[in-house]
Design a protein around this nucleic acid. Structure first.
Lengths: 333, 333
DNA sequence: TTGTATGCGTTATCAA
DNA sequence: TTGATAACGCATACAA
């Protein structure tokens, strides 16, 4: 059992064959006779041989690594997503490297550059900020979730409008009449925030309720404290609010916390619904009703898309939207 | 601006120097005259050259990647940890690749093997299960947090006994007299669970309280539902419990949820304290008191240790314990 | 079915 | 201070 320094030639010598035959056995490329294969495999076991990833990479041009760029890996949603993407990639024989963008356009650009520099075979990019980007044959990118980028990329998205509309309707069905909405960012750009906000508006209008701009609350998308402060503002608003649609579970929990700071009970005084269905939502107090896209489906699709694009860079871009359900829990009871 | 296919030789030709000089400029190894350096840098900019990581890796034997193996990246604690490790590694010029072990001994062994296979320069291993492991000159490993492995590895640990003891004392100071403890795993082995349990016992005895074995509740360490069920069991126990020490924040939140399921109010009916101080703890309802180790310090130390060991594999193993504070929040008010 | 020759892009070593 | 040469370990192309 040598450690790490065994090369293919060593194995070949041990098995009494040429290095090329060892290579063929390992990658089972061309047919190899059973007797030779056995001998080679035995030699590999005996020597403790492991392929040198660097050499294989240099020679073949493939690293076997897919990048996954997310805003923050410490965020519950992206942590869950990463777990699923890692699992799905494994099924295709790929390893996943995680990058963090900080939800900054510069960070997203940097992740793409990094993806080239580190020679990932492909990149799954959960972009929230970047607004323009040109596909590049040498750098297969699949967008996950947020930005649109004009249909020039493969993309897996969540039902932004539909999901928020369903959430809003659920609140209406529960008897809410003054429904606030918590969004983020700039509603003049077509971001995830805008889409979800549009879903909220559409549902209201659909049910004959006139949207009231005063019921719209903006929040910094990544901070717990920002969400909490927003909850307090909603509690203090004195606008007769009896329901709140929030664009993410993490933020919704922060908002509930802020409401609680002001003595507003959920769901008794105000109902709250989120978006994402992160694991924490089921055990929060109160447990959080939410829009639940099929995360496993998303991860699987995204991996499938990069793998396909790595194999054929000329494929036309494809888009998929995940199925979803509205999960009813205590926060809207 | 070529894309990706520019080699060092191309740059050399463009600058009118040898490839070796380009290499020297890039890695600023030996002294290079300013005029030549300028010409080379200009050629690099002009050509859009990027070093080929695979070739560099093959030739130098360094990948520039540190592995980070954690049980689950979707877990709040490990997500936070990963963020910090990534940031700290960046300062040393390293990239981080995340592996998941599933908190299984087999997964931990696999992560170590994977670390070799993918040729990480070093590995930060957050092991919880593995019980024996031999250091290996070719595979620098730093243990983060849990397992001890007999002082043969570099290691950064959290104040397990001290932290839990302080947590327990805090409950006593708040007037608790029947303090339950939530642990996991097998207390016959010296795991993180055992250490934290020992800290709890030590604090009780220190204050003249006789530990009652009926007040010890075991839980499956990684599932929300397991934690919730444990909370219900505690509520149903009818043992006069008025305080609970839990070995992690994530589990503590699940326990509080279980208590709530049974109508037990925190902190009014029972006080609860956790361990870790994950971001969520501050916004949970009620906000969770907890033992807060200095996470940034831990991450920085762990990275520092791998980097040092990569540079000199013969260094004697070193151990460090993070400083901590007890954060008082609503759950023990 | 197996083997030989060659080169991927970089850096270590040594010479100039 | 700069350059020539070789080699890292593997897989492509082709020959046997």
């Amino acid at each position: 059992m040598n450690r790490g320094k065994v090369t293919m030639s060593d194995v070949a010598r041990l098995a009494g064959v040429s290095p090329m035959t060892v290579s063929n056995v390992i990658n089972d490329r061309v047919p190899v006779s059973d007797s030779v294969r056995e001998r080679v495999l035995a030699a590999i076991r005996e020597s403790g041989y492991q392929v040198n990833a660097a050499a294989r990479h240099l020679r073949s041009g493939r690293s076997g690594v897919i990048g996954l760029a997310v805003p923050q890996i410490g965020n519950a949603y992206f942590g869950m997503l990463a777990t699923l993407v890692i699992e799905e990639a494994q099924r295709h024989g790929y390893h996943v490297a995680i990058e963090q963008t900080g939800a900054l356009a510069t960070g997203e650009v940097a992740a793409i550059a990094q993806s080239r520099r580190l020679q990932f075979d492909g990149l799954i990019l959960s972009a929230v900020e970047i607004e323009s980007l040109t596909p590049d044959r040498g750098n297969p990118i699949v967008l996950l979730g947020e930005q649109d980028l004009a249909g020039r990329f493969d993309r897996v998205t969540v039902p932004n409008e539909g999901g928020t509309a369903a959430a809003t309707e659920h609140l209406i069905d529960q008897g809410c009449e003054r429904i606030a909405v918590v969004t983020g960012g700039d509603l003049n750009r077509l971001t995830m925030f805008t889409r979800r906000y549009n879903g909220y508006r559409a549902a209201l209008e659909d049910r004959g309720i006139k949207p009231d701009p005063r019921l719209r609350f903006a929040v910094d998308s990544l901070s717990w404290e920002g969400a909490r402060a927003t909850g307090r503002r909603i509690a203090d608003a004195d606008l007769g609010i009896d329901g709140v649609v929030v664009f993410s579970d993490t933020i919704a929990m922060g908002v509930m916390r802020g409401l609680r700071d002001r003595g507003v009970g959920v769901p008794d005084d105000m109902r709250v619904i989120g978006f994402d269905d992160v694991p924490e939502s089921a055990v929060y107090i109160p447990s959080l009703s939410t829009v639940s896209p099929d995360h496993r489906w998303k991860a699987a699709k995204a991996v499938e898309l990069v793998v396909a694009r790595i194999a054929d860079p000329e494929l036309p871009p494809r888009e998929f939207t995940a199925p979803f359900t509205v999960v009813r829990r205590e926060s809207t009871a």
